[in-house]
Write a protein that binds this DNA or RNA. Structure first.
Lengths: 213, 213
DNA sequence: GCATTACGCTACGACTCGTAGCGAAAGCTC
DNA sequence: GAGCTTTCGCTACGAGTCGTAGCGTAATGC
């Protein structure tokens, strides 16, 4: 899943799965204690109890390692059924905010996103392991709301795709900006206000010919 | 303005203002060519035609230098009067997106934001030189819309402050996420869709007892 | 047993960092 | 002008990190 292609060799000593987990956990620990800039691969290897060369055999560099370490933080994200679209959104946004509030996510995620502006492979890695799973939650939430009758079924699939992308950028961007730039907590009060604005904007736009914009 | 406190000494050789400009320009140039991680202060000094020691006398490190270099990019942001709130928002968001699309802004801004999660002084520097001027544009836009009668005058100043903060996080966050994470252009079509959702959300929320949320 | 791969360890050259020390230059005040 | 003060360019330095090579050993499949 992570690391680079070991090509699944059929012979020889297999790689230790425990080492992978130890390295990723050590990476998160180092992110908390040292932050992105002072994190060194040698230190991570020592914390994980493996040799530095072992780490380099599995990850090509600091960027890829941190992406995988941070991605695991977002694995716990899920979309609980709270009965209404508004409640569903508030629930998942609060989960997202709670993860982003953790120091290992703060210092690691933004740094690799910054690096990804000059590294297409890294951006693709981030997209596949972090962004796309989040976007799937938006898709699930929309489907659920449509089943409830809170949102009309989409007619134009391309238009629906654009709308999902817009929603995703608005939701994730707002929470990230609130947490990292404004450095204020995305607490329940803030999330309620945000969800209200978002939902009213979407439903009003939908009922006033969204496809005509 | 930038650099650290030279204490304004009354005597002795004054610092070269041209050197400051050359260093900041060289920093942006290095950001474009090398990106954040491969940018070294020694290289910037060489590009600027100054000694490395001169650079260290004015900036305490890479973080502070890049903040000042990137902050100048946002100086050109202004709020043109386009006649309506929607048009004003679209105009300033497009300007913001154009700046963020530049490689020196992409690679530099996110990196220093990431660093600021573990450095309060750096976050304050970013806030004062980059974030607050942007937020002032939101305040100007609201005042103008209120003068036009497009928005009601605020009653509770604390509630109004929270609303401005929310708008700012939504706008800036969405554009940043669209540009850096989704890696899609925040072009006119996207900005129109986004503005429509935002405005409908705000006006609907305002007319349906925003202070009661 | 044998081939193959992973592992831990050591050592290495290359690079960047941030600072110290020096003499020279450029201002201001008198 | 003389003298004081601060900045400037330059060189050099120890410290730290990087990523890799080489070696002997450990763990698998055949």
């Amino acid at each position: 899943m992570q690391s680079r292609t070991p090509a699944t060799p059929r012979t020889g000593r297999p790689r230790s799965a425990a080492a992978d987990a130890a390295i990723l956990a050590a990476t998160r620990e180092a992110l908390v204690e040292l932050g992105w800039s002072k994190l060194t691969l040698g230190d991570v290897a020592t914390r994980a109890g493996v040799a530095k060369t072992t780490l380099y055999r599995r990850w090509s560099g600091k960027n890829e390692l941190v992406v995988d370490a941070v991605a695991e933080l977002f694995d716990e994200l899920e979309l609980p059924d709270r009965g209404s679209l508004a409640a569903d959104i508030e629930g998942v946004v609060l989960q997202f905010a709670a993860i982003l509030a953790r120091p290992e996510a703060k210092s690691g995620l933004m740094a690799v996103v910054a690096e990804s502006t000059r590294d297409d492979a890294l951006r693709e890695r981030i997209r596949a392991s972090i962004v796309d799973p989040q976007k799937d939650l938006v898709l699930d939430g929309r489907a659920r709301a449509q089943a409830r009758g809170e949102l009309p079924p989409e007619t134009d699939p391309e238009e629906a795709s654009r709308t999902v992308d817009l929603i995703f950028d608005v939701v994730a961007g707002a929470v990230v900006h609130r947490t990292l730039v404004s450095a204020e907590p995305a607490d329940e009060e803030w999330v309620r206000s945000f969800t209200k604005v978002l939902l009213l904007g979407l439903t009003s736009a939908g009922s006033s010919n969204l496809s005509g914009i």
